[in-house]
Structures are given as structure tokens and as C-alpha cells.
């Protein structure tokens, strides 16, 4: 394991983690029509979901641009 692999894996995991966590906090997909579901549990969780996607994919840039010993 080197720095490149560790950081890339971390970024992917953080991104996926943010996606999973924010998805749970979105206006929940488990209920259909209740008034409670018209608002997200945590505001901006959709934004966090998107940020999760961005972080996960940015890891590819780090992976290729990072200069380190193999």
C-alpha cells in the first residue's frame, strides 16, 4: 500500500459514504405521501449527495496526477 492507493481509496470511500449518508437524510424515499416526506431531514442533503459523487470521481485525478514512488 502506498500513498496513492490509500488516498484514492479514501476519496472513493468518503464519496460513497457521503452519498449513502445524504441519501438517508434526503426527503426520505421510504414514504410516499406523508407531509413529513416533503422536506429533507437535513437541508442541502441533495447537494451533499452531489458532492459525494464529485469527490468519488475526483479520486481518479488524484490517482493519475499524484507523483510518488511506487
Amino acid at each position: 500500500m502506498n500513498t496513492r492507493t490509500i488516498v484514492t481509496t479514501l476519496m472513493v470511500l468518503v464519496g460513497l459514504g457521503l452519498m449513502v449518508v445524504s441519501y438517508v437524510f434526503l426527503a426520505t424515499p421510504t414514504c410516499n405521501t406523508s407531509i413529513a416526506c416533503s422536506n429533507p431531514v437535513m437541508p442541502f442533503s441533495a447537494g451533499i449527495f452531489v458532492v459525494g459523487i464529485l469527490i468519488a470521481f475526483t479520486s481518479a485525478i488524484f490517482y493519475t496526477v499524484y507523483k510518488g514512488s511506487e
Binding site: Y23, L26, P43, A46, F49, L54
Partner: peptide
Amino acid sequence: IQYGRPQSPFFGTFTMVIA
């Protein structure tokens, strides 16, 4: 970004597709 609901098929459009 603030209130997005995954139940709406448009959520997929805005997050998955465009972002």
C-alpha cells in the same frame, strides 16, 4: 440542492445525469 427528493425521477436527472 436544498430540497431534492429522490422519489421524483427528476432527481436522477439532476444529480446522476447532470452532476
